[in-house]
């Protein structure tokens, strides 16, 4: 009886293996939700010209994408940060060599409620607001009202970049922490709604998501825009990456080449990001 079961299970597994092999030209793309908006359109435009390639794309977050790359379930990992050294080690242990391709520029913009008179904040002010040292808008040139600090969940790529570029800026040994009183939102959309609905709020958001429901605040006197991020004058920008196992080859290469092509980069700019060239 037991043997029969073993045979059955073995057949089943073999069957799955064969089915997997039939889609040899399947590309699985996973990772950062920041990259998702333009990657998705790129997939949609890439697919008709390449009917033999089956691309499935999802946005499980940078960490998940890289996790997938490491355990070989994902071919392209979208990332809103550079791969960590610990992740590279894990990958190497699994026989995967992460290869980095920068595909777009993103800039993170501090956002406030449209009715907020504050137009500009310095790094020092942003840092003090997020660490809980400044708790009133009047200390940064606004009205006499408390500041509702809104952040992202600690596993978001945007959180990581904000932490690194703003909160820990200038820290030496003791790293600064975001005040525990800060509210936490679990997605870019939730962040936008939270800030748009709260007159006292300050949050941060990738420039691709910022819309008219909130007001973007300039940093160190520089307004976030395509131009300022590109010429490196806007201080809060980051690169977005696609990671592959080794240098891209075959269909994966074709797709990444498409993203880097003028057509692909036009999608990048159309979705509110900044092209890499």
């Amino acid at each position: 009886m037991l043997n029969k079961w073993k045979v059955f299970v073995a057949t089943l597994i073999r069957g799955l293996g064969v089915a997997g092999a039939a889609y040899a030209s399947e590309i699985v793309v996973n990772g950062s939700t920041t990259v998702l908006p333009f990657a998705q359109i790129a997939v949609e435009r890439f697919a008709p010209a390449h009917p033999e390639v089956k691309i499935s794309i999802s946005g499980g977050g940078t960490g998940n994408g890289i996790k997938g790359l490491i355990d070989k379930t994902t071919h392209i990992a979208n990332a809103s940060r550079e791969i960590k050294s610990s992740e590279i080690e894990q990958a190497k242990a699994n026989g995967v060599t992460p290869f980095e391709t920068a595909v777009a520029l993103d800039c993170i913009v501090p956002v406030v409620h449209p009715s907020n008179p504050v137009k500009n904040l310095t790094f020092a002010q942003l840092k003090k607001i997020y660490t809980g040292e400044i708790t009133n808008w009047k200390d940064v040139g606004g009205e006499n009202a408390a500041i509702a600090v809104v952040g992202r969940d600690s596993s978001s790529g945007t959180y990581g970049t904000w932490q690194e570029l703003v909160v820990e800026k200038g820290d030496k040994d003791q790293k600064s922490r975001v005040t525990p009183k800060a509210q936490v939102t679990a997605s870019s959309g939730a962040m936008l709604t939270t800030v748009a609905k709260n007159k006292l709020a300050i949050g941060y958001e990738g420039i691709g998501y910022v819309d008219k429901t909130v007001k973007a605040v300039s940093v160190e006197g520089v307004e976030a825009s395509l131009a300022t991020a590109k010429n490196n004058t806007y201080p809060l920008s980051r690169k977005l990456y696609m990671y592959t196992d080794g240098a891209p080859a075959g269909d994966v290469k074709a797709f990444i080449d498409y993203v880097l092509s003028p057509d692909g980069q036009k999608i990048v700019t159309d979705t509110g990001f900044i092209n890499i060239h």
Binding site: G60, G61, T62, G63, N64, S154, S155, P180, V184, A186
Partner: peptide, 25 residues
């Protein structure tokens, strides 16, 4: 907000939403 609520109107962060928000990454 990961603080102990002191009033009814304090933001709170229960175990469930912590797991949901952070497990993914």
């Amino acid at each position: 907000a990961a603080v102990i609520p002191r009033s009814l109107f304090d933001p709170v962060r229960p175990l469930t939403s912590t797991i949901a928000a952070e497990m993914g990454e």
